[in-house]
């Protein structure tokens, strides 16, 4: 009779029984749906890698976190299982190395995190010594040193962490956890067209993803559509210009709601992307920033022919 641990409880399973079935039979509440390995409602975490049918269809991020389909894994194959928590990654010390206010409401914050590996496009949770935690996407370009974490912080008046970050000084200590999220460069062939669409501090992960793809020799076109309220508030232009000069297959355009200056265009970055790319079959799309824009873009890119698995979306919800 197989036995395994579910958090602090010893579970006695029946022969050939699944983990899910054993837990339900023992009176534990576990969310579940199709019980056929398709709906991914019943994910749990395992202390060891299970592979094969127990992880079929899960993305890399979930597999890295030890997730498995409890309706598919047989009880005899597991030792210790738990509910999936987001915070199984270690907490690392981070020291502020520079700060720069780049627009009325955006602060660029750089932190030194020893033994950190850059994770372009993904996000970390930043915790102030007083315990307040907020998620921020990593903007570090892929060629930067391994211990540098660059963040774009949108300053929200009255925001619990924003107000403290404004007063931050070089040398201040924070902690970070991560990386999290699914918004990162993946390409089997390296020649797909890539659309990067976003607004506000969404430029942080989009820029970072672009540097990752380009440095890895992506051959397809990479077009970035960046939305901002006004031209004055669109920041990071120099970095985008440098990237377009260095790589002929990269292009960025700025789209503003009002007060357009220079070559900036009035209108939505999504509308511009759609006009230039009416058929997105085979495309990869990365969408970061304002939740309304990200959700609309996810649907439009999908309806225009991109596979859902090729659309990575990260909506920035204000906490």
């Amino acid at each position: 009779m197989p036995v395994f641990w579910f958090e602090d409880h010893e579970i006695k399973a029946e022969d050939a029984e699944t983990v899910l079935s054993a837990l339900l039979r023992n009176g534990f509440s576990v969310k579940n749906g199709c019980q056929a390995g398709a709906c991914q409602s019943c994910l749990l975490g395992s202390s060891k890698s299970l592979g094969e049918a127990a992880q079929r269809g899960l993305d890399d991020d979930l597999i890295a976190r030890g997730a498995f389909l409890s309706c598919q894994a047989k009880a005899e194959t597991v030792t210790r299982v738990s509910r999936l928590a987001d915070d199984i990654l270690p907490t690392l010390p981070a020291v502020v190395t520079s700060m720069k206010r780049v627009s009325t409401d955006v602060l660029l914050l750089a932190l030194d995190v020893p033994n950190w590996k850059p994770s372009p496009g993904r996000f970390i949770r930043l915790t102030h010594p007083n315990g307040v935690t907020r998620p921020y996407s990593v903007a570090t370009p892929v060629w930067e040193s391994n211990s540098l974490v660059q963040l774009h912080v949108r300053l929200i008046p009255g925001g619990e962490l924003s107000d403290r970050l404004v007063q931050t000084k070089v040398g201040d200590s924070f902690t970070i956890q991560g990386p999290y999220g699914k918004c990162y460069y993946r390409s089997a062939k390296g020649d797909e067209n890539i659309l990067l669409i976003g607004s506000g501090t969404g430029i942080a992960p989009l820029y970072s993803i672009a540097t990752d793809a380009l440095e890895r020799g992506h051959r397809g076109k990479i077009n970035l559509y960046f939305g901002s309220a006004t031209s004055a508030r669109a920041y990071f232009r120099e970095e985008l210009d440098e990237l377009s000069q260095k790589y002929p297959n990269f292009r960025a355009s700025v789209h503003v709601d009002a007060d357009a200056e220079g070559s900036d265009l009035i209108g939505s970055p999504l509308t511009a992307a759609q006009l230039e790319h009416p058929n997105m079959d085979g495309y990869k799309a990365y969408l970061c920033g304002h939740p309304g824009l990200v959700r609309a873009a996810q649907k439009r890119c999908y309806l225009a022919g991109a596979n859902l698995s090729d659309i990575s979306a990260d909506a920035f919800e204000a906490a």
Binding site: G33, C34, Q35, A36, A38, C39, Y302, L308
Partner: peptide, 25 residues
């Protein structure tokens, strides 16, 4: 307003069922 990724997983479960595949609904 639905989460498209979760919804796609539900569509997959529905298709598996409609195709006569394994399910416990």
């Amino acid at each position: 307003g639905v989460d498209m990724v979760q919804q796609a997983a539900k569509q997959k479960a529905f298709l598996t069922m409609a195709f006569g595949g394994p399910n416990n609904y």
